[in-house]
């Protein structure tokens, strides 16, 4: 299975939220399929934590120049997946398709993934003591289907496929938008963003000038968790250094002691 990524094209999006509805329906039926819920229960008792794709609306400026921006809040399926790296229970898996998946049956509810995520994505449910987030419909794509959100999109604003396919489409669309609107556009996450997240499995096409309005961070990282990662990476050298220094000192002390004893014996003779 090759890597599969999603692209959200904000310019083609008509804000119908069909993607979000389809995502919620898919997750409800997953409960029916995976957890043995009765079908009625799985659709009648929607769990907030099962809404993997949600809208965040921000308003900027004042009337009549007011502008409303709706950001789609979702897991970006980071290449370096900080959530996976920090999870102590091994509950987060990065599948061959690139999907970063939380296995709820082994999640211990420690919320480390929430601490590590620079996009504030995983949701914790007190009821289940588990954390959940978008699973990139790995079960669907591994069976030849598109992600539920992609399938629900009526305008092609959400599209997915292999990296090459999606990249080609992105290049094509950005060229058209540049010509049409005469401004810069970016494909956020197509190239490596930083060492903390790497590339993203969910790319967003937006006008460059609106990056801040969409609250897409240029350098997504948690400095605190990055420090912790640095400390962890340094630990073998630090601990190894301490062990080597103490062993070296002990050998040095033995050699010195031999000298002192020999000198003492020599004096006594």
């Amino acid at each position: 299975m090759s890597k599969n990524i999603i692209c959200y094209d904000s310019m083609s999006c008509i804000r119908c939220y069909a993607c979000m509805t389809n995502c919620a329906i898919e997750n409800s039926t997953r409960q029916f399929r995976d957890k043995g819920y009765k079908y009625e229960a799985s659709v009648n008792e929607p769990k907030e934590s099962k809404f993997y794709l949600t809208p965040l609306t921000y308003e900027y400026g004042k009337y009549p120049e007011a502008q409303k921006i709706t950001k789609f809040h979702h897991c970006n399926h980071c290449e370096n997946a900080p959530c996976k790296q920090i999870c102590p229970a091994g509950a987060i898996e990065q599948r061959k398709s690139g999907a970063v998946v939380i296995h709820e049956n082994v999640c211990v509810g420690c919320r480390s993934c929430i601490d590590a995520c620079p996009y504030n994505v995983p949701k914790y449910s007190k009821e289940t003591n588990k954390t959940s987030k978008c699973i990139l419909c790995h079960d669907r794509i591994e069976n030849g289907l598109k992600q539920a959100c992609v399938e629900g999109c009526p305008t092609g604003a959400l599209f997915s496929g292999s990296i090459q396919e999606v990249e080609q489409e992105i290049v094509k669309r950005i060229a058209i938008y540049k010509d049409t609107y005469n401004e810069e556009f970016v494909a956020y996450g197509l190239d490596k963003i930083n060492n903390y997240v790497g590339k993203l499995g969910w790319v967003t096409i937006i006008p460059k000038k609106e990056m801040n309005l969409y609250k897409l961070p240029e350098n997504p990282r948690s400095n605190a968790i990055a420090l912790r990662n640095f400390a962890k990476a340094s630990a073998p050298f630090l601990i190894g250094g301490a062990l080597a220094a103490t062993a070296g000192h002990f050998i040095y002390w033995l050699a010195k002691r031999k000298e002192v004893v020999a000198e003492k014996e020599h004096k006594e003779e």
Binding site: S112, I114, D115, N120, S222, A224, I225, L227, R228, A231, K232, S234, A235, L238, I239, A242, L243, A245, T246
Partner: peptide
Amino acid sequence: LEALQWAKSLHGTFFILIIFFLII
């Protein structure tokens, strides 16, 4: 969340430093 991130980071970092100094 930010306070918790720093708490987690300092807890882990000081744990490593304590191990280092404990060996010595």
